[in-house]
Write a protein that binds this DNA or RNA. Structure first.
Length: 170
DNA sequence: CGAATGATCCGA
DNA sequence: CGGATCATTCGA
């Protein structure tokens, strides 16, 4: 579930060192029943990873410039993923949370490429570290960003940690 | 508000 | 194979 990702720490170890950030904003995409999901049109080469095992990365390129990272997460047989939209720096990412406020900024700060698609987020250099659950009163939710209102109006699938400076600004 | 910038998908 | 689309960002 998307809200379980809030508060978890995304870690990327590469030859340059470790980068880590605490996730403070995510959006859920629900697969074939969700027209906004890249999995909506079936297992195309790009979206195929979302039809596989949960806990893997799906990184796509937005507008030719911005890598955006998702965590494949779904119930058996129902493709879906969670877009990472905002985070707070923990290690190796500087001190300004606004540099991680937005899916493109976040994935770029980690140096992610579309080739990172498929990474096992439990065992690979790119992984998620568990963290205590965020209290319900600290979690806010609203409509997803950049999606036609007709699609998303009744689906408040964007979740964020109230008051965090790592939440994307609008 | 519009440009940047390229992978992806669909229709022909 | 060509054109439209895009889960975005930044600067004028």
């Amino acid at each position: 579930m998307a809200r379980d990702l809030l508060g978890k720490v995304l870690v990327y170890d590469d030859p340059h060192g470790r980068r880590a950030a605490r996730l403070v904003e995510v959006e859920a995409y629900h697969g074939p029943r969700d027209p906004a999901s890249h999995a909506h049109r079936g297992p195309t080469p790009r979206a195929a990873v979302m039809f596989g095992a949960p806990g893997h990365a799906y990184v796509y390129l937005s507008h030719g410039v911005w890598p955006c990272m998702n965590v494949v997460a779904h119930l058996p047989g129902v493709p879906g993923a969670v877009l990472l939209r905002g985070a707070e720096p923990v290690v190796g990412l500087g001190g300004d949370p606004r540099r991680l406020a937005g899916p493109g900024l976040l994935a770029r700060a980690f140096g992610l490429r579309t080739a990172d698609t498929g990474a096992d987020l439990v065992r690979s250099p790119l992984h998620l570290r568990d963290a205590p659950a965020v209290a319900a009163r600290d979690v806010a939710r609203g409509p997803r960003i950049g999606i036609a209102p007709s699609v998303t109006s009744e689906r408040a699938w964007r979740l964020w940690i109230r008051g965090s400076p790592g939440v994307s600004r609008r």
